[in-house]
């Protein structure tokens, strides 16, 4: 009899859960189609990761209904989870490969790290706000992202123990590029970083290192939270 109740209860749980999950899945699929692929992101690995990682698990309860909207959402402490398209664009622009080691500065909710962890071998993400860093670490652990490591520290110095990196993704606006990050970028590596005024408009910039030569390319205007270490 007990097992019958158990099966019945489990079935009821499933019935209750499936529509919710299906709802998010369909919204995620729509997000990938209409917000990301439609705007020119074509890298299959990026699109697959964006379609796999459950963005709604990275937003606060109050924003759950807006999780797949085409906009950044506040996550507390003056920080946001970036607009889905920007996350996908920044992922694609670093040309992520399966054997890559990627450093992320500004873990925030951990969403960008989770996307990268779907594609590359190792993700090292840093967050200066302890509360956010701990929450991101716990979230990534629960989701089984074993190849993503969170360090609660100021991103200025990068993560020298794990350097060099194939790519560095900075998800917070800065008005300078920290020299230690440039040093920790591999020869041939790519760094993407938003530059400019916080919460108004910044420019997403690609930094490429080829030997002694460093070039930058302005990519597109975006809005991000500021880089910790800049005012």
């Amino acid at each position: 009899m007990k097992s019958l109740y158990f099966i019945l209860g489990f079935t009821l749980l499933l019935v209750a859960a499936v529509p919710e999950d299906a709802h998010h899945t369909s919204r995620r699929e729509a997000m990938v189609g209409s917000q990301i692929a439609a705007r020119g992101v074509t890298d299959p690995a990026t699109l697959r990761a964006m379609g796999t990682v459950k963005r709604h698990l990275f937003v606060p309860e109050a924003s759950l209904a807006d999780a797949y909207d085409d906009r950044p959402l506040p996550i507390g402490y003056g920080q946001t989870i970036s607009q889905p398209f920007i996350v996908a664009y920044m992922t694609e622009i670093i040309h992520p490969q399966q054997d890559h080691r990627v450093l992320e500065i500004g873990a925030g909710s951990g969403y960008q790290a989770a996307i990268l962890a779907e594609i590359v071998r190792n993700v090292y993400t840093m967050e200066v706000i302890p509360e956010l860093g701990r929450a991101a670490r716990e979230r990534l652990r629960k989701l089984g992202c074993r190849n993503a490591e969170v360090r609660i520290a100021n991103g200025y110095d990068g993560w020298p123990e794990q350097a060099p990196f194939d790519a560095i993704v900075v998800t917070a606006a800065a008005e300078y590029i920290p020299p230690p990050l440039l040093k920790q970028l591999k020869d041939g590596g790519r760094m993407v970083i938003p530059i400019g005024s916080p919460f108004l408009v910044q420019t997403l910039m690609l930094v490429e290192k080829k030997g002694a030569q460093i070039t930058t390319t302005q990519l597109m205007p975006v809005r991000f939270v500021p880089f910790r270490g800049s005012p």
Binding site: V128, N154, Y156, E175, Y176, I177, P178, P179, L182, V207, I214, T216, R228, G229, S230, P231
Partner: peptide, 20 residues
């Protein structure tokens, strides 16, 4: 305002090697 993590170097050249 003071914090050991606050640095200031707007528009710094990528050739700058010193600690900000």
């Amino acid at each position: 305002f003071s914090s050991p993590a606050l640095r200031y170097a707007p528009g710094l050249s990528l050739t700058y090697q010193e600690r900000i």
